[in-house]
Simulated scan of single mutants.
Amino acid sequence: MKDPLTNIKNLLDATVYKDSHFGAGNKNAVFRKIHKPKRIHFLPALVGGLLITVLASVGVYFASGKLGGGEGPIASPSDNPITGEIPPSQGQIGTPPAPLYAAKDEDELSIEDAETAVELSVDALTDYYKAVWNGMEIDLDRYIGNENLKQYMETKLQTEYKKYGTLDSKVKELEIGDWEAKFTEDENGGYLYVQVPVDIQKHYGGGYGEEIEFFIRNINGEMAIVDWYTGGKDTYDYLVRGYEQTIGNPAIWNDDEWVKKFKSPTGLYHFEQQVYDRFQLTHDVNELAGLDPISIAKMYAYASYHEDFDAVYALYTDREDHTLWSKEEDEEIPLADRGTKENILEIFKNLEKGTFVQTGDDEGYIEFYPNEDASEKSGFSMIRNEDGIWQAAFLPVQ
């Protein structure tokens, strides 16, 4: 698919760009006008066939038995693992009505709520792995009691699905190992720490294991997750939250400073920040090798917000047939013509939640909703250079 920007450039070259009075500032004014989000038209992705696969219900069952009345830690019976059957699917289904994970006492939490807390954790994990590997929906409101944590999990799910959901390796079954639960009192009514080891089995053989930790509180009589962490090297939480971070503070998602780096529309994850810091020093495009288009676009937004215009220009495509103005012309653009920080935040909001759509061998765009109420998507155009590295197109936002 031919990049429409090529036609724009040829048209401009043949007309207004010939005018010696039409300088970089004028070109940037065109750039800012085109920044206004516009609707992206999509080609039909499927011709015929069913769009939704009817899935069997997933059941997770617990061994019966009354928990002890003490306040110390308890553990699951070692000879009675929990399993949850997951049918293979690439489609999605609606989430059934949410079950109640009611605390035994509406006004407080105790170790007697441990079994229900584990049930909540296992149900959340079952839906999580179905979403990541099988492409099914998950209702995070059903499990999570903190809005900041929910937003983090939404980004985590989208990122993990892009990595694993397109593989022909659907999850068949989860097997829950010997879980542990511990209750701790605090000024906010106490919380349960739940540790759940899980083995993920695939339909075509193979699988892997992870250990997941939760903090759970009683919120208006119903238990809800207030932190969710998957340990292990190279896991999403390990890479994004930081390799030195452990689950140890049930109120961490209420900490504005902690939330800031995950919530900011132009915020970079730990590994992206490391790459950007190196790139900023040399503007060597080879530093970007291996990064996906969304990470590159986030760096562009980050550099724009922080007025690092040398880095902004260095992130543009270096293909000559897609270059719209030179570095020298870019340096002549007044700061007042580059847009305010508020404008940049508005343009790139939710960019990190977007989906990359490749339209040609070396062309594509990221589609995203600039806000939750938007009815039309925005797009961020990307071009891959001759070395296989994705870069921002000139006039990238459509």
Rank of each mutant, 00 (worst) to 15 (best):
G354E: 09
G69M: 09
A301T: 04
I86P: 00
A103G: 08
L395F: 15
Y229L: 10
F22H: 08
I111N: 11
K377A: 14
R384G: 12
L46R: 05
R217N: 11
F394T: 09
V194S: 07
T246N: 12
G205F: 09
N371T: 11
F279M: 01
D361T: 10
A124I: 01
L100P: 00
I347V: 15
I294H: 02
S110N: 10
T83G: 02
L345P: 01
P73K: 05
A311D: 12
D178P: 00
T15F: 04
K298P: 04
G221K: 03
P88T: 01
K341F: 00
E386D: 14
G206C: 09
N385F: 07
L149G: 04
T53H: 11
M223G: 03
E320S: 10
K349Y: 07
W258P: 04
L239P: 01
R142E: 00
T317A: 06
T166A: 09
S121E: 10
G360Y: 12
Q245L: 13
N371W: 08
K349C: 07
S326W: 03
H41S: 12
P44F: 05
N385V: 12
A45W: 00
D13F: 08
K263H: 12
L5F: 11
G25R: 04
E244C: 08
E185H: 03
G177I: 14
D255L: 05
L324Y: 11
G206A: 08
K202G: 08
S78D: 12
S57M: 11
L149Y: 05
Y313M: 02
D337R: 11
Y17L: 15
G221R: 00
L149I: 07
R338H: 06
A63V: 14
K182S: 13
T340G: 10
P4D: 11
A117D: 14
I216S: 05
I247Y: 09
T126P: 03
D362C: 01
V171T: 03
T340F: 10
Y128N: 03
P77E: 14
S326A: 02
G205H: 04
Q280H: 07
V357E: 13
I34G: 07
P44M: 05
E108K: 15
R39L: 05
L174F: 00
I347H: 02
T166K: 13
F42N: 06
G70A: 12
I252T: 13
V312Y: 00
P88F: 07
K38M: 06
L351E: 03
T340L: 07
M153A: 05
I344E: 05
N350K: 05
G232Q: 03
G84P: 02
F42A: 12
G165E: 06
T126L: 13
A374T: 14
D321P: 03
H270V: 15
